[in-house]
Computed example of a mutant assay.
Amino acid sequence: MAKVLYSATMSLDGFIAGPGGDMSWMTEYLGPNPEVKELITRIGALLVGRRTFGGDDPHKGDEGEGKPFGGGWEGPQFIVTHHLPQETIPGITFVDDFDSALAQAKEAAGDKYVNVLGASIGRQCLEAGQLDEVLVLIAPLLLGDGVRLFDHPGGRNVKLERLSINQVPLATSLWYKVS
């Protein structure tokens, strides 16, 4: 059965995107990463928020623009949105219900990961008790403002069990199991 993994690159001060969803800061931290390369082989489907899907792309201007992991991954994507678009895109399913999107992504992933992209969808998975693991790559910079990894004022404490910590070429990787 699929596990649900929320993965993100984050600044040391806790932001996964800058003000207005700006992802341009991440470009210099996208270098070779053996841990991410290995993870990509274990992803069976993506569960993505609409803002993340249609947002700023750290691969803008290169051959990986508009592709998951800069073109390093291909497979089914489930985009959670309140407004279903008219157009269809091969390999991409737009879903207007979080629970349905998660169920479809899990089915599509089989025994691999459903990789969650987007702060809102990550938070919704956590609140629904459906988040199994969190992988955070901490980039060595302070953004000062933007979109937080998890932002839920008044939220509850969530215990995590560390699975690994690694120094990767351009970041520090922290991988946790949600207890």
Score class of each variant (00 low, 15 high):
M1Q: 10
K3E: 15
K3A: 13
V4A: 01
L5P: 02
L5R: 09
A8M: 12
A8F: 11
L12K: 05
G14L: 02
F15M: 08
G18S: 05
G21H: 08
G21E: 09
D22W: 05
M23E: 03
S24I: 00
S24M: 01
E28R: 15
Y29I: 00
G31T: 06
E35Q: 14
E35C: 04
E35R: 15
V36M: 11
E38Y: 03
L39S: 05
R42Y: 09
G44Q: 05
A45F: 07
A45M: 12
L46H: 14
L46E: 03
L46D: 00
L47W: 05
V48A: 03
G49C: 07
R51T: 12
D57S: 10
D57C: 08
P58K: 09
K60A: 05
K60Y: 00
G61C: 03
E63W: 02
E63D: 09
K67G: 02
P68M: 04
G70W: 11
W73D: 02
E74G: 10
G75Q: 02
P76W: 04
P76M: 11
Q77P: 01
Q77N: 05
I79F: 06
I79M: 08
I79Q: 06
V80Q: 09
T81L: 02
H83R: 15
P85C: 08
Q86L: 10
I89G: 06
P90C: 09
G91K: 14
G91Y: 12
F94R: 14
D96N: 15
D97W: 04
D97C: 14
F98H: 01
D99G: 10
A101R: 01
L102G: 06
A103V: 06
Q104V: 02
A108C: 07
G110I: 13
G110Y: 13
K112C: 05
Y113T: 02
Y113E: 01
Y113Q: 00
L117D: 07
G122Q: 07
R123M: 12
R123D: 07
Q124K: 15
C125Q: 13
L126T: 10
Q130I: 04
D132N: 15
E133G: 04
V136K: 00
V136H: 01
I138V: 15
I138Q: 07
A139R: 03
L141S: 01
G144F: 11
D145K: 15
G146W: 09
G146R: 07
R148V: 01
L149W: 12
F150K: 06
D151R: 10
D151W: 14
H152Y: 12
P153C: 04
G155D: 08
R156Y: 04
N157W: 12
N157Y: 12
V158I: 15
V158H: 15
L160E: 02
L160D: 07
E161F: 08
L163I: 14
I165M: 13
N166F: 08
L170T: 15
T172L: 13
L174C: 10
Y176V: 03
Y176Q: 04
K177M: 04
S179L: 12
S179G: 13
